[in-house]
Simulated assay, not measured.
Amino acid sequence: MVRNVVITGAGSGLGRVMRERFLAQGDRVHICDVELDLPVRDTARTDKLRGSVCNVGDVAAVEALFDEVAAWMPHVDVLINNVGIAGARAPVEDVSDDEWRQIIEVNLFGAIRCMRRVLPGMKRAGSGSIINVSTSSVATRPVNRSPYNVSKGAIETLTLSVAREAGPFGVRCNVLRPGMMDNPRMHRVLQRVANDSGKPVDEVLRNELQFVSLRTLVPMQSVADMAVYLSSPAAAHVTGQVIAVDAGAEWES
């Protein structure tokens, strides 16, 4: 069965891997991303893939995104809220109100706005799957990352609330919680830590992985595979769950 899938933040990284995974099984996919220089801008208008430039932190932009979605998708079967910005890195007392507002606006309200647009149609159809991408940092709570941790923690609570509200209508809502992924973003983080500490990158990585049970970074494909599973009929009775694909993340230094 061909499904209609919307994925935010799908111009690169995990979002891009997820979009390719859904396309490979024949689904129709509409993606969005905020960066104008990403491939999303030039996505070919085909019968399977379309894209929009969209900042989910902007109300009007989200409305425009779903107007574009509605122009070729009669309804949305799967919504994946993948967008997440890192925000300020500082002790709580040094984070300004504007910095708090920015990350909450994108990470939390962006997901709320997208869900607001798809939930009525899903309820009418009596089916649908919403996946909100969180982070293992909600559990490990790295220091000086309170805005990010709080925004994603709020996403997890929101997910559980929506799962309860929408469940009687046949709509499922789950959290996908990735750990340290093997991607360019993580390698940039490792390089920054190496530069700040004066340690080699491989030593920094070893130090971080001592807090991961499987002692390995997580391939983005593994996370994408879980997204496909959670949206599939095989997970028809899975809702209101926080599913971690984190190789057993225990802590973050």
Results as ranks from 00 to 15, higher is better:
Arg21Trp: 11
Arg21Gln: 15
Phe22Trp: 10
Leu23Asn: 11
Leu23Ile: 11
Gly26Gln: 04
Gly26Trp: 00
Asp27Cys: 13
Asp27Lys: 10
Asp27Tyr: 12
Val29Leu: 05
Val29Thr: 13
Ile31Lys: 00
Cys32Glu: 02
Cys32Met: 03
Asp33Gly: 15
Val34Ile: 15
Glu35Gln: 15
Glu35Trp: 08
Glu35Phe: 11
Leu36Gln: 15
Leu36Lys: 14
Leu38His: 10
Leu38Val: 10
Pro39Ala: 05
Pro39Arg: 01
Val40Pro: 05
Arg41Cys: 13
Arg41Met: 11
Arg41Asp: 11
Arg41Val: 13
Asp42His: 08
Thr43Gln: 02
Ala44Glu: 14
Ala44Arg: 12
Ala44Cys: 11
Arg45Asn: 11
Arg45Lys: 07
Thr46Gly: 07
Thr46Lys: 01
Asp47Pro: 08
Asp47Trp: 03
Asp47Ile: 04
Asp47Tyr: 08
Leu49Arg: 01
Arg50Trp: 05
Arg50Leu: 03
Arg50Ser: 07
Arg50Glu: 03
Ser52Asn: 01
Val53Arg: 04
Cys54Gly: 05
Cys54Glu: 00
Asn55Pro: 07
Val56Tyr: 04
Val56Thr: 09
Asp58Met: 03
Asp58Thr: 09
Val59Ile: 14
Ala60Gln: 14
Ala60Asp: 13
Ala60Phe: 11
Val62Met: 02
Val62Asp: 00
Val62Lys: 02
Val62Gln: 01
Val62Arg: 02
Glu63Val: 14
Glu63Tyr: 11
Glu63Met: 07
Glu63Asn: 10
Ala64Met: 04
Leu65Tyr: 05
Leu65Met: 07
Leu65Phe: 09
Phe66Val: 01
Asp67Pro: 03
Val69Trp: 01
Val69Tyr: 01
